[in-house]
Write a protein that binds this DNA or RNA. Structure first.
Lengths: 339, 339
DNA sequence: ACCCGCCGCTGCAACGTTGCAGAACAGTAA
DNA sequence: TTACTGTTCTGCAACGTTGCAGCGGCGGGT
């Protein structure tokens, strides 16, 4: 393989020192116009591209951020990844996406040590199964921004939406349509998912504020958050002696699965059962009926997370960890049309 | 920031030379059991992790592959990315996902030069808008595997399914259900998309084999391949004096958009209009009705592409470029149930 | 007794870049 | 002339790793 050109080759061709070429390329020291031009010509002629491996080794950084998500083919994470990659690019960073498949072992591996031998400058983690305790025990020095989980004692930078309020609003939205029996799909035990806990809390809070009792049999847990799980949960609910007339699902995939279960039984959405989801994935907008949902500001989440991480890699290295809140809004579509 | 430990630190602690630690870590030279144990203890105690930047600089490779796709939030690409990342991991490679948004400039930038300063060892490209000519002009030495496009003269490794056959089978599937007027959604001019051309060819071939004439007004072009485009195209078809009774869409998003357009007009799928898509994305399985589709073996595509690229980075560097074909099958679901 | 070969380990140099300190030169002021 | 300032450019060393060559010591064959 023909070796690609190095600073040395450019220097020889332009008749200057290696150092001067480096200065021109990086725009560092003052360089005479004439010299600059000669160097630039040589750079163009030889198609010189700085070797990032060498540059980063010398500079002590890699220019690479890691985005760690449970599953990339879950639309919410794909949409988030898109935004994160774009935002990182604005700062000159490259993004490596890693999937954990929800395995705690993989998550630990990626955040505990200087993952991949300091190949990454920082990590954005959307934790799935990592316990709070494990996070707190982390002793890596690589900056970490958490997505979507409540802050841990000990503290990391943390970007999230107000899950309790969002869930409360979604539930209240269903109450506002006149529903009395509203179910929740997606609850999880504390160790597994903090987020689910917060949404259940919001669900309960809405009941409290509406002066309605919570029927515990209407809160259905899920181990995973895929369409199939939503369909299964809906089947469980429909088998109850007194099924719900509205369902709040903790993400859109669950909701789409639930709708599928309803429609395939000949039930109508929203006439027989209203459905609202969470995440505002594109699928929901084009489902039939289109899916009402809680829409987190994904773009804003990505911006907050990346900007925070980049700041911490630069000047703000020693700032205390901060809580960053992103917006959300209720997106009412056909699946919760008023009766 | 506390410096992370280096080979030197481990060597000091274990009382051996740097070189010996390196040998232990890499399993290279024969090392006495006693020495090995001491080194391994020191490695564990200091939580030594090799600095990949330094290692790769020395070795002349980065261990990073780039996957270049038009849009990561298009489910097909997200599912493909997932498989590619997993497969690359098996070979010890890390994957950077880059999105081009279909901009030729971005695609060119990523494949032309030694992209990102040789940060990548190789590239897997799913081209959107890059012309054949531009590909042929490429003079980078970084190995490139193409996905989904017909091979270019000059030659690259290339992984694809047999688009013509797949499209023919999809169309024939609709004929088999007794449909006479079958439409196609997703045609594109040659410069933009080779893949679309192949599918149109398959569509025509099916007509030929069935002895039916092609009604050109039933072939609707699309600039993009999103749900909205499918919905728009379907609207166009429904406005015809004699609308089709079945539609073959060049991807599942178009098909879901088309179904949406049908259902929102009160038409039934498949009773009034049958719909089949392409890609077998997860959304289609849970749509109502569930979407029939051409299912390419994504896992196989990812394996072929990654394995080929890795082989080319190793021993097979000088092999001639090869055409690799992945399987596909017709996945018949509710949207094309027999009448 | 001698030599040879193998095992286990080591030091040096280099990958391509940048930080640092300073050299060479020109211009200005005293 | 000398001293000083500033501009432009340079050489050396280092980032943390691995390739290469080589060194001592020990055992076995002749």
């Amino acid at each position: 393989m023909m070796a690609s050109s190095r600073l040395r080759d450019v220097a020889e061709r332009a008749g200057v020192s290696i150092r001067t070429v480096s200065n021109v390329v990086n725009g560092y020291a003052p360089v005479a116009d004439d010299t600059r031009r000669r160097v630039e010509e040589a750079v163009a002629a030889l198609r010189y591209q700085p070797n990032l491996l060498a540059r980063n080794l010398k500079r002590g950084r890699s220019g690479i951020l890691a985005l760690v998500v449970p599953e990339l083919d879950v639309p919410y994470f794909a949409e988030l990844a898109r935004a994160v990659i774009a935002q990182a690019r604005l700062h000159g960073y490259t993004v490596v996406v890693d999937q954990t498949d929800g395995e705690p072992e993989r998550e630990r591996e990626l955040i505990m040590a200087n993952a991949r031998g300091a190949l990454f400058d920082g990590v954005i983690l959307s934790p799935m199964s990592l316990s709070q305790g494990e996070l707190a025990e982390r002793d890596s020095l690589m900056p970490l921004v958490l997505l979507g989980e409540r802050s841990v004692t000990g503290g990391f930078d943390h970007v999230a939406i107000d899950n309790v309020t969002a869930a409360r609003e979604a539930t209240a939205h269903l109450f506002g349509l006149g529903h009395e029996r509203v179910a929740a799909i997606g609850d999880q035990p504390y160790e597994t998912g903090d987020t689910a806990q917060l949404r259940t809390a919001g669900f309960r809070l809405a009941h409290e504020q509406a002066g309605k009792p919570v029927d515990e049999s209407l809160i259905v847990g899920c181990t995973r958050f895929h369409r199939q799980d939503g369909a299964d949960a809906m089947a469980t609910l429909l088998a109850l002696p007194e099924p719900p007339t509205a369902v709040f699902c903790y993400n859109d995939l669950l909701a789409l699965g639930a709708m599928r279960a309803l429609l395939s039984r000949g039930l109508r959405v929203p006439e027989d059962v209203a459905v609202i989801g969470f995440d505002n994935i594109e699928d929901g907008r084009f489902a039939t009926p289109s899916l009402s949902t809680v829409a987190p500001a994904k773009q804003q989440i990505a911006e907050l997370a990346v900007d925070r991480l980049v700041a911490r890699l630069g000047a703000d290295a020693d700032e205390p960890p901060s809580e960053l809140w992103a917006e959300h809004r209720i997106e009412a579509r056909e699946s919760t049309l008023g009766r």
